[in-house]
Design a protein around this nucleic acid. Structure first.
Lengths: 227, 227
DNA sequence: ATGTAGCAGATTGTTTAGCAATCTGGAACG
DNA sequence: CGTTCCAGATTGCTAAACAATCTGCTACAT
């Protein structure tokens, strides 16, 4: 059930590792992944490497054109706008569905509490933030909405990593908005839950866009270490 | 650009044919597709057949569990509800985006006019209806929304085929609602366009559900020919 | 006669090897 | 300096084969 549409099992190890390198910016935008290179690096056959790459491509974490090597995409400003807009559509719908039943998913509550607990320190809350939003969607009953969400979550992680790396939003700020969403869900107010979720997502988007506009043309990772 | 995420080219011929057999009910729900059988039938190698099958699986037109043959799914009542709910979310968002620019896509207008033109006769409007809704989504600028939409359109086609086959809605009725949506888009009224789109989709859903509830437990295609 | 254990067939998962088609970049030429 | 062509690289696709796993049937014990 939690499996992401494509069902193969062995490539998942390679998939995980490639995914991690992309998300952690170890593989910077523009880096190319050839099937042979991946196959050699992990000691597997080319078809297996191919599967892992194709899965990444279907999630938008890699781009590829016919007869060309897959490469890590550079997210343009338009991409970021599109991404967060679409995310707002899906997640606000999920929040509304959740609120219409009035039940708060346990996983969402867990992630929320762990962000709260670490809000004082310099917590790397990005993974928990992801977990929270994912739980919001997987907690509601629509399986199609979950599939749609997982279709864009890869790219979203790419963005949220930047939000956190550049300290564009504090854990306390994010946590407060999460609390409000959970309250609306618990109060069985779909309208409010949807609105809060939408503005929460749009707030992150605005911060990221402002950062991108301020620091270069695209997503130059030039000043990640300005603490 | 219009290509559906997975990029291979040869399997697309097989994919198209399999897709057609499923949508036209030639392959009834429950039919199984083994990789070897498909490979043999189309004279291609098993990996190629595998790709086509996996693509269908990722669209929900086939279901499959590990080490088992893929089979044509039977859409349960819950599936239909989920499908149309999710579709309403995506398409109403698309209509709103379209209206915020105030431009009516040419393809949508074309499809609409052809339904109008044939509304008197016993037109098989299902393909045109699909084309209309697809144009509504592809006409707006968000590429992610398009990808999400194509993720559920396969299953939607499965349903709309039944709506038309059983004469659950007349072409005139559908056409009038399409007209209203286009008017709202042209009038640059996102709110209205979204609301009209949502109720249009929900109207189809209600008709289909009523039909399913009336004629057996699931989607028994037992009385397709009651004209 | 019934329930269970185990076995055989079928199906997919994965690998290896290799050929064909296509794209990219640079070198030779006008 | 611009254009054409070629070589290398990379993917698309095929073929054959072995391993892992599931399903359904058969034989056995109760």
């Amino acid at each position: 059930m939690p499996g992401p549409s494509i069902s193969t099992i062995l490539p998942s190890a390679i998939y995980d590792e490639l995914r991690a390198s992309i998300l952690s910016q170890v593989a910077a935008p523009g880096t190319t992944f050839t099937e042979s290179a991946v196959a050699l690096q992990f000691g597997v056959s080319r078809p297996t490497a191919k599967m892992a790459i194709e899965r990444l491509v279907s999630e938008g974490l890699l781009h590829r054109e016919v007869h060309q090597a897959a490469r890590v995409p550079e997210l343009s400003r338009a991409d970021i706008v599109d991404l967060f807009d679409t995310r707002a559509v899906v997640e606000s719908a999920a929040a509304a569905k959740l609120a219409s039943e009035g039940t708060v998913p346990r996983e969402a509550l867990d992630a929320h509490r762990r962000i709260q607990a670490g809000a004082d320190g310099d917590l790397a809350y990005a993974p928990l933030d992801i977990a929270f939003h994912r739980a919001l969607v997987t907690g509601q009953p629509s399986t199609r909405l979950v599939r749609m969400h997982s279709l864009i979550m890869g790219e979203i992680e790419l963005c949220i990593g930047q939000v956190q790396a550049n300290h564009l939003r504090t854990a306390a700020e994010v946590s407060a908005e999460h609390q409000a969403i959970l309250d609306a869900v618990g109060a069985a107010d779909p309208e409010l839950a949807a609105r809060l979720t939408r503005s929460h997502v749009e707030a992150s988007r605005e911060r990221l866009l402002a950062h991108v506009d301020a620091s270069g043309t695209a997503d130059s990772p030039s000043r990640e270490n300005h603490r």
